[in-house]
Design a protein around this nucleic acid. Sequence first.
DNA 1: CCGATACGCAACGGTCCCGTTTCGTAAACT
DNA 2: AGTTTACGAAACGGGACCGTTGCGTATCGG
Lengths: 200, 200
Amino acid sequence: MTIQESGTARPAGRPRSEKAEKAIIEATLDLIGEGMGVSELSIEAIASRAGVGKTTIYRRWSNKEDLVVDALATLKAPVPPLAGTSVRDDLISLLDTMRSEAGNPRSRCVINIAMSEADRYPQLMERFVKRAIEPRKAAMRDVIKRGIASGELRADLDVDMGMAILTGTMMWHTKWGPAGDLPADLAERIVDAALAGMTP
Amino acid sequence: MTIQESGTARPAGRPRSEKAEKAIIEATLDLIGEGMGVSELSIEAIASRAGVGKTTIYRRWSNKEDLVVDALATLKAPVPPLAGTSVRDDLISLLDTMRSEAGNPRSRCVINIAMSEADRYPQLMERFVKRAIEPRKAAMRDVIKRGIASGELRADLDVDMGMAILTGTMMWHTKWGPAGDLPADLAERIVDAALAGMTP
DNA sequence: CCGATACGCAACGGTCCCGTTTCGTAAACT
DNA sequence: AGTTTACGAAACGGGACCGTTGCGTATCGG
C-alpha cells in the first residue's frame, strides 16, 4: 500500500512469465503450420516443444480449443495495402498475398485450419472465419464492386461468383497444383485468365 | 482330388466371409465420409461399426493404410458420360457431378481425403490421386482441348489454368460456400461465369 | 465324423495422452 | 526474512487404441 498505487493492482507473488506464454503460442502455431490437425494436437506435445510444463499451459487455458483460438488470433491481418490504381492490379495483390502465404509456415496455419477442421470445431471456425477470412473477402468484394462501378468489370458480373473463381483457383493451386513452390507470376496469370474468360 | 479340379484350388477350412469384408469396407467409408480423417480412424472403431472382430480385419489388412486404399478403390469411377454436343454442356456435366457428390456421403470421402490428408500419407495419396483424381482431370482436359480445336474456346487458352478455374471454383463452393445444399444450377452458373470472364 | 480355417469376443501388455497433484525451486511482493 | 504465486519436472489414475493371443463356435473339404 506504499508505492504502485497506479493502475491495476499487481497480484502478489511471482508474475506469470511472458516468455513462457510466447513459447506456448509459438509452439502451437509451429505444430499447426507443420500440418498437424487440431484434433491431433496434444497439450503434451505443445508443452514439450515449448520447453514448458503442462501446468503452465493449463494455468492459462482450460482446454485445447481456447489455446488454439488465442494462438490463431496472434496472426496479423492478412489484407495487403492496395494501390487502388487498377482493379487488375489490386486483384493481383490480393491473390499474390495468398500465394506467398502458402509458402510461409506461419501463415500456412490459416490454410491448414480452414481446409481441414471446417466441420469439427464449428465455434473455433466461427471466430477464425470472422478474424482471418472475412477481412480478405470484404477487401476483394470492395475491389470487384469498384471495378463494376468504374466499368473495368462487366456490369452484370456476379460479385460472389467472381470472388469464388479468383479465390478458388488460387486455393486449388496451393493444394493440388504442381508440387514445389508456386510460380511468382501465378497471381497475375490467374487474374488475367479469370478476367479474360475462356471463350474467343 | 475328385471334383473341383477346375481353377484355383480352394484352401481347406472355412472360407473368409464376403459379408464381413463388405461390412468392413462400408464401415471405413462411412467413417471417412462423416469427416473422420485417416489419422483419426481406429481399427477398433471400424470393427465396432462393422460388427466384426478386430481379428477379422487384421487377417486381411496388415495396416490401416492398406485398408483405406482398398476401401477407396471400391468407389466407382467418377467420370459421367458426356453428351459431346457442346463443350459448355460437357463442362457442366463434369462440374455437376462434383456438385452432386458433395452431398453424397459416400462420394464425400473423395473430397475429405483429398482436402485433409494430402501431405500426411503421400503413398496413399499417390494411389488415390491416380485412381480418383486423374480420370476426372483427363476427362476435363479432353473436353477443353476439344473446345479449343472446335473454336468454342479461345485458341490461346491455358488448358491447365482453365481446369484450375473450373475445378477450383466448384471446390471452393463445396467447402466455403453458403451453408446447406449447393444450388442445382451451380455448375451451370460457374461454367457460364468462367467462360464469359469478368471484363466487359 | 474330422481336420482345418474363419468367425466374434474378450483379454492381454504396451503406448500415448488426458487432466490433476506433488515437489523443490524461482521470482515478485511486504 | 517471510509470504505468495509461478515455474519445470515428475508421477498419478484413467481412458483410448494398438497389435496379439486364446477361447468357444461356425462352416467348409474330405
